[in-house]
Write a protein that binds this DNA or RNA. Structure first.
Lengths: 132, 132
DNA sequence: CACTTTTTTAGAATCATTATAAACTGCAAA
DNA sequence: TTTGCAGTTTATAATGATTCTAAAAAAGTG
């Protein structure tokens, strides 16, 4: 199993549940944008045994803390996550409520000219809302 | 009362509650970033009579629909609103959980090079997260 | 004033997320 | 391999923001 090492290296025990969630999250070509609810549905389809909702939350938070996932800032009642943890941005299709990755090169350089004393910039995220 | 016309012009009856909320929201020098919870506290201090929480939600949504307020996309369990409805961006101080306006001129032009068929860009929002 | 429509309200309902505490599991040391 | 224990999983309860409901109150109109 290719995810065992990954988990072990980051101090997470490679449990059956975590490995199955890894399969759903990372064993794919494109990056994956999801809410916990959507992920739960996919896990249900993909695996035979049930994984508790609490475990899904636990795992996603653990993965996020380890840097395997990113939260996407967006106004929604549900939290969106992204398997693409590189520095990039998003389109958000307001009608379909779907996210699309926007590579840094698609946006061009962003120069934050203002500085705040005693603070440093951790990230710069761009959300481009789309309508028909 | 200076807000009566504003409300009437947008088809909202200028009720006592709405006028009081207008005072708290708009009668200030700087732009105001808030959650419903914070707003409720301020209303409690500012006004003698109690305004129901449901009314606060109703009013904020009505004002947002009329374009007097904007939601700010951010990862938080609570929704943030902004009285600054001009096209601008935000710093978000992760430690203090506070927002700071970033004028467009502080960010410079943003050029979205990629296009999505059949969709047009409604807004471009930049969130700059700050750490110590 | 009489009547209609909008608004307010308290409280219930909903829904995402987090907490709890007991059972289970991976894993390292004996 | 067995034992012991920290780390995990789990069902369920709890929380907290937000929305819904339906009845009362207020605003607008003639």
């Amino acid at each position: 199993m290719k995810y065992i090492e990954k988990l072990r290296n980051s101090g997470l025990r490679p449990t059956k549940q975590r490995l199955q969630i890894c399969e759903v999250l990372f064993n794919r070509d494109k990056t994956f944008h999801f809410t916990i609810n959507e992920l739960e549905q996919r896990i249900k389809k993909h695996t035979d045994n049930k994984i508790s909702l609490a475990t899904i939350y636990n795992t996603i938070h653990a993965f996020e803390k380890k840097g395997y996932l990113k939260q996407i800032p967006i106004n929604s009642n549900q939290t969106y996550f992204d398997t693409n943890v590189t520095d990039h941005h998003h389109f958000y299709d307001l009608k379909d409520e779907k996210l699309i990755d926007l590579e840094k090169s698609d946006v061009g350089p962003i120069n934050i000219l203002r500085k705040i004393d005693g603070k440093k910039i951790k990230s710069v995220e761009v959300l481009v809302k789309l309508e028909d």
